[in-house]
Simulated assay, not measured.
Amino acid sequence: MDATTVVLTVAAVLAAVVLAVAVAVLVRLVRTRRELRRAGLPTGPRWVFWGAVLYLVLPADLVPDPVYLDDIGVLLLALRSMRGSVTAPAPGAPPRRPGRQPADDYAP
């Protein structure tokens, strides 16, 4: 094996690993959205979810597609946004202390 073949093989393996991570994060994003909707909780703006999915699928990226690090970043931001919409207090709601449950407000 010459040096070029080794470099190309290593690059292909790294690209496959990064692609697998991107797909795993996409699956987690889809599952989280599905679970939030099933529970009747807010999933955040719809465009965040679909924008992240389209960014992964479409070939126009900030970084060329063999490198999926930017795609993973966009998917993670969308996942964080969706989870943040669940924990964000409603506008006008009093702030809650950490570790406090809503049922604590009604305890005698």
Rank of each mutant, 00 (worst) to 15 (best):
V7N: 02
A11Y: 02
L41F: 10
V74A: 12
D71W: 01
Q101V: 13
V53M: 01
P95G: 09
V57L: 15
A39Q: 07
D2V: 05
L26D: 00
S85C: 13
L56R: 10
R38Y: 02
G92S: 09
A93N: 02
P45D: 03
D2M: 05
W47I: 14
Y55P: 09
V25K: 08
G51R: 06
L26T: 09
V7L: 10
V53F: 06
R33S: 03
L77T: 12
V86P: 01
R80D: 13
F49N: 11
V7W: 03
D71K: 15
D104E: 15
A52S: 15
G99E: 13
L41H: 10
V53R: 01
L69F: 13
T87E: 09
S81T: 13
G51T: 06
R46Y: 01
R33C: 02
A15W: 01
V86C: 07
L19G: 01
D61R: 15
V30C: 01
A60K: 05
V48S: 04
S85Q: 15
A22I: 05
A39R: 12
A11R: 04
V86S: 06
E35K: 10
A52R: 12
P95T: 11
V48C: 03
P94C: 12
A24F: 01
R97A: 15
L62G: 14
P64N: 03
P91A: 09
T87D: 07
P108A: 10
A12P: 03
G99T: 15
T43C: 08
P102R: 04
V23L: 03
M1Q: 08
G51F: 06
T9L: 06
V57G: 07
A107Q: 09
A52T: 14
A12D: 06
L41C: 10
P94D: 11
T43V: 14
L8Q: 12
V86D: 07
A78I: 11
R37M: 06
V23M: 00
G99V: 14
R38G: 00
V27G: 01
